[in-house]
């Protein structure tokens, strides 16, 4: 499949004034300001195919938002090439942005004081969407997101979840080829989160919209996509399937054991104790040791008298935390 986004050796360096503390240093800073260079992105290259959903993940300050901003034409990189939908975003901004939709989870593109539908009408004018197309798109979005009730109310009266639904709809009115979602599920409750995820999947299927999303919620990634790009300290660390990463880390199990009584110092060869609470102990196998249930039962019953136990895989969040740790992020 043809790639729709091509990033080549993109670098972005910020010049940041260096602030020093202490009154004399602050005074001298006032007259003679020192700058230091912060490398937000270093030789970032990747390409994304048309119709893909790609998770763009990394810890805070890794360069995710900077990348999104470059891709949406807001920021000009210090060096490197980038082609999206056949455009160089920051050079042909006005033409290019007709092809994209953007949702910044912590900002709002809709007008605060007026009913949401009025904001949509303005977006229709701004993107010069023909009336019939607009009506049809709105119908689809209304149905998928259940907007009917909330659309006639001013934005300021809506809850965070309702706002996010409206933001998503607003970013899709002109049927962009690419949708950038910067933390779309931040702060949402469980039900709304599921609704938003379903909606993203639905749009991707229906309109073949390419979707790039950043998130810290790994269940978003798990539910939406198998393709991830991992960025840390301004560099791409991993670009591939999420399954690969999960496999690599998921041989580790977490076992909760209920013992018949309280033991003074509980320990088991090859296992690390996570927590002890009276006769309840939580342990996990060391990464170098492969886990076999039968072997585990034999080993533990020889040493301790157990009542019950429960085995679970480590959570996705833990997978990611380990991943960050391995890459020293």
């Amino acid at each position: 499949m043809a790639s729709i986004i091509d990033f080549q050796d993109i670098c972005k360096t910020f010049k940041v004034p260096e602030r020093q503390t202490g009154k004399w240093k602050m005074l001298s800073n006032f007259f003679n300001r020192k700058h230091k260079l912060v490398h937000a992105l270093q030789n970032v290259s990747f390409s994304i195919n048309e119709g893909d959903i790609v998770g763009y993940i990394g810890p805070n300050g890794a360069g995710k938002s900077t990348t999104i901003k470059i891709m949406s034409g807001i920021l000009t990189p210090s060096s490197g090439n980038c082609q999206i939908c056949g455009f160089v975003p920051w050079k042909e901004r006005q033409e290019y942005v007709k092809n994209i939709g953007v949702v910044f989870g912590q900002k709002s593109q809709l007008w605060w004081d007026v009913p949401v539908i009025d904001s949509f009408e303005l977006l229709k004018d701004i993107y010069k969407i023909p009336n019939e197309e607009y009506a049809e798109t709105l119908k689809v979005l209304n149905k998928a997101l259940n907007l009917d009730e909330i659309i006639s109310r001013p934005l300021r009266q809506l809850s965070l979840g309702q706002k996010m639904k409206c933001e998503l709809a607003g970013s899709l009115l002109h049927r962009p080829k690419i949708l950038f979602l910067d933390e779309p599920t931040i702060g949402l409750d469980a039900i709304t989160k599921l609704a938003v995820r379903d909606f993203i999947k639905y749009i991707n299927k229906k309109w073949k919209t390419t979707i790039i999303l950043t998130t810290h919620d790994m269940s978003d990634i798990d539910a939406l996509t198998n393709k991830i790009i991992l960025i840390g300290k301004g560099q791409i660390l991993y670009n591939g399937t999420f399954d690969n990463i999960k496999e690599k880390y998921s041989n580790q199990k977490i076992i909760q054991v209920e013992l018949s009584k309280e033991y003074e110092d509980f320990n088991l060869d090859g296992y690390e104790v996570i927590s002890v609470n009276k006769n309840f102990v939580t342990i996990k196998n060391l990464p170098q040791k492969e886990f076999h249930t039968k072997e585990f039962i034999n080993q533990i019953t020889k040493k301790y008298d157990i009542v019950d136990f429960q085995i679970s895989s480590i959570s996705i969040d833990e997978v990611l935390a380990k991943l960050y740790k391995d890459y020293e992020l």
Partner: peptide, 21 residues
């Protein structure tokens, strides 16, 4: 007020992703 608010808060980013000057 909305203009100074959006500039200071960074919401102005949305103005950049519109196909107008």
């Amino acid at each position: 007020p909305s203009t100074s608010e959006e500039i200071v808060s960074g919401n102005v980013g949305y103005k950049f992703v519109r196909p107008i000057n």
